[in-house]
């Protein structure tokens, strides 16, 4: 999963230092944690990596929703492995964010009290088994589209985390597509489930790239810093061009009557998602915003005694070791 609508921070530092920093980025050098960096670069990255990490964590929930109902042992094992990967991605990303001077607990607090966001796609419900296919195929597919270029991002720890994450995400997308294949080639009811899942996840997946950013100053700054590598529109176009033939192969219909191949641009023309829905979901009014955040808060609150217990035990052991020395 990934971060959406991250606005880059303005920065007001010594122009000479800024120019030298920009020159390093332009030369393709990686910025490492101990290097000098503009405050705006640091803050934007914290927000972006943190949001990405939160998306991985909240993203466990819609898929976890089906682990106990997976139809076969193999599907259950694959889904468990996938959700475990997501938690692992969250862990690498929090570690990458920590190199910028923020702790995982601070980031968690900001997620739980709503100061930080996670990808809005996880505020949609998973209603049938076909949704496990659609999430892998479309949602992970959209995420990969965004993440592959981020392997080349200027911040070293982020770039290295993305390289590991991308390897696993491509497996996730394939398993999603494999579920869709089974459903699309299955009984009439299974095919109906597959079509229904595509109908519900198509536009929210297009929204994952964010609104058009052609006039956004923030995007321009992030692109200059190589924190953002492509425009939202470019990535969305690429996603549609890749996904439409896959839907055709499945024998499913993309829920967009205006969808047409455009020979001149060498890509599809397609309908924009309803951006008012996108902003509603970001504002907290999506179908599952309340449940998702409540589930994370409950896990954190219910787990407080566990964290405190284990910390207290570790402190006792340290004290005993010191006393013995």
């Amino acid at each position: 999963m990934y971060a959406q609508m991250v606005q880059s921070e303005a920065t007001a530092e010594d122009p000479e230092k800024l120019a030298a920093f920009q020159a390093r980025i332009d030369a393709g050098e990686k910025i490492e944690p101990k290097d000098w960096m503009p405050e705006g670069y640091r803050k934007t990255l914290i927000r972006q990596i943190g949001q990405h990490a939160h998306s991985e964590i909240v993203g466990q929930l819609p898929e976890g929703n089906w682990i106990t109902r997976a139809p076969t042992l193999e599907r259950k094992a694959i889904l468990l492995a996938k959700v475990q990967d997501e938690a692992g991605h969250g862990l690498y990303l929090y570690c990458a964010a920590e190199t910028l001077g923020v702790s995982r607990d601070e980031l968690t607090e900001m997620l739980l009290d709503g100061r930080m966001k996670y990808s809005s796609i996880f505020n949609y419900p998973t209603l049938t088994w076909a949704d496990m296919g659609a999430v892998g195929w479309l949602v992970d597919g959209a995420a990969i589209m965004n993440q592959v270029p981020l392997q080349r991002t200027s911040y070293g720890p982020y770039s290295r985390a993305m390289i590991r994450i991308c390897k696993e995400e491509s497996f996730h997308q394939r398993q999603g597509y494999s579920i869709m294949m089974k459903m699309a080639q299955g009984t009439p009811v299974q095919k109906k489930m597959a079509q229904d899942a595509l109908n519900r996840f198509w536009y929210p997946s297009l929204m994952m790239f964010g609104p058009s950013d052609k006039d956004s100053v923030h995007s321009a700054q992030s692109m200059k810093w190589k924190i953002k590598m492509n425009t939202n529109d470019d990535l969305r176009q690429k996603f549609v061009d890749q996904t439409v033939p896959q839907a055709e192969f499945l024998g499913l219909t993309v829920p967009d009557e205006t969808l047409r191949w455009n020979e001149d641009k060498g890509g599809y023309d397609f309908a924009e998602p309803d951006w008012s829905e996108f902003f509603d979901v970001i504002q907290g009014n999506g179908p599952c915003n309340t449940e998702r955040l409540a589930a994370r808060n409950k896990a954190w609150d219910d787990g407080a005694w566990v964290r405190e217990g284990l910390m207290a035990h570790a402190a006792k052991k340290r004290a005993a070791k010191l006393a013995a020395e």
Binding site: L73, A77, V83
Partner: peptide, 29 residues
């Protein structure tokens, strides 16, 4: 154990619980 997925007290436990469940389901097969 898989019922815990996404609801553990700390991220490392989410990973460990999923891992344990995964091993057990593999053994079941």
């Amino acid at each position: 154990v898989s019922e815990w997925c996404g609801h553990a007290p700390v991220l490392e436990e989410d990973i460990a619980l999923a891992n344990t469940a995964l091993d057990l389901i593999g053994q079941t097969q």
